[in-house]
């Protein structure tokens, strides 16, 4: 990389670029992470005890999760719910992405994309609050359903995970739609036509031709959505019921309410491991490499 850069810009500039890049990665990414990992392996001590005989490396912060049944349950619930959010988002996004990429005229596609993007000019918290209002017990959705006679009495959408699911699908839909759109868009129309011409119906054409082609896009979208969902704080905090706590809320509590950074760091690190694990699983399942996803 250095040679390419120096051939293009000369040695001094190339060195400057690489030094800056290195420093940025070091100071902004690597060091804080290492610090957190270091925290996670030390007990929570008073300032006076730091460096003392009790300041040793220990796994106790990690053991906490395995001993605390409630935290463990929330950890796995977060995993499971994030998978569910990812799948839901995929199901919602695929038809939309296909429509944008292959069915819509350029004008329709542009309009549609604009409509998709405009809400994202508004802060995520506000958007989430709007769902809070829509889904409220006496909110507009219940009113409409009542007025249409579809239900007899209002539904508590916000108890349980329903509200969180809806909020997250909405919050992260673009991260699924765009990778899918890019992937489907690059499919040669004649591939679809050929499949139809050889007798394939709609479902089979998608199953055998469009989806296999869009696999890298699906993988990218799923990984991004999963990461965002698993690491989401605002949506579960606002739309979640007391019974639907997210693991990020526990981490937050350790840091800012329990004042136990070491414990929080251990939990955060476990969440990171979870996300990486999920990512590798998805990549293995879709048989795509990191290079395909970065495209």
């Amino acid at each position: 990389m250095f040679r390419q850069l120096s051939e293009r810009f000369g040695r001094p500039v190339a060195m400057a670029i690489l030094t800056l890049l290195g420093m940025w990665l070091m100071v902004m990414v690597t060091l804080p992470q290492l610090q957190m990992i270091d925290y996670s392996f030390r007990p929570n001590l008073l300032p006076a005890q730091l460096g003392g005989p009790e300041d040793v490396w220990t796994l106790s912060n990690y053991v906490t999760l395995f001993n605390n049944e409630i935290h463990r349950a929330i950890f796995f619930k977060t995993l499971w719910s994030s998978v569910l959010v990812t799948l839901l988002t995929l199901v919602v996004s695929y038809p939309l992405a296909y429509y944008l990429a292959k069915v819509a005229t350029p004008r329709q596609a542009a309009l549609c994309i604009l409509l998709l993007i405009i809400p994202f000019w508004i802060n995520e918290i506000l958007r989430t609050y709007s769902w809070f209002i829509i889904l409220a017990f006496r909110g507009p959705l219940n009113e409409i359903l009542l007025a249409l006679g579809l239900i007899d009495r209002p539904i508590r959408f916000l108890s349980g995970d329903g509200g969180v699911m809806v909020g997250m699908v909405y919050a992260y839909i673009l991260f699924m739609v765009f990778p899918l759109y890019n992937a489907i868009e690059s499919l040669d129309d004649n591939q679809i036509r050929a499949a139809r011409d050889l007798g394939a119906g709609n479902v089979r054409t998608h199953w055998r031709i469009v989806i296999p082609h869009a696999k890298p896009g699906i993988a990218t979208g799923c990984i991004m959505t999963f990461m965002l969902a698993a690491g989401s704080y605002a949506v579960p905090a606002l739309l979640g019921s007391p019974g639907s706590r997210w693991f990020t809320q526990i981490i937050y509590n350790w840091f800012f309410e329990g004042g136990n950074w070491n414990q929080g760091a251990a939990y955060a690190f476990l969440l990171l491991v979870l996300c990486i694990g999920f990512m590798s699983l998805v990549m293995k399942f879709f048989k795509v490499g990191l290079g395909d996803i970065a495209k």
Binding site: N190, Q191, A195, D197, G199
Partner: peptide, 16 residues
């Protein structure tokens, strides 16, 4: 298209 007794060879072949 998928019910017609025809088969097409595309200009770019469109092999899968």
């Amino acid at each position: 298209v998928n019910r017609r007794p025809t088969a097409m060879i595309f200009q770019n072949l469109a092999l899968f």
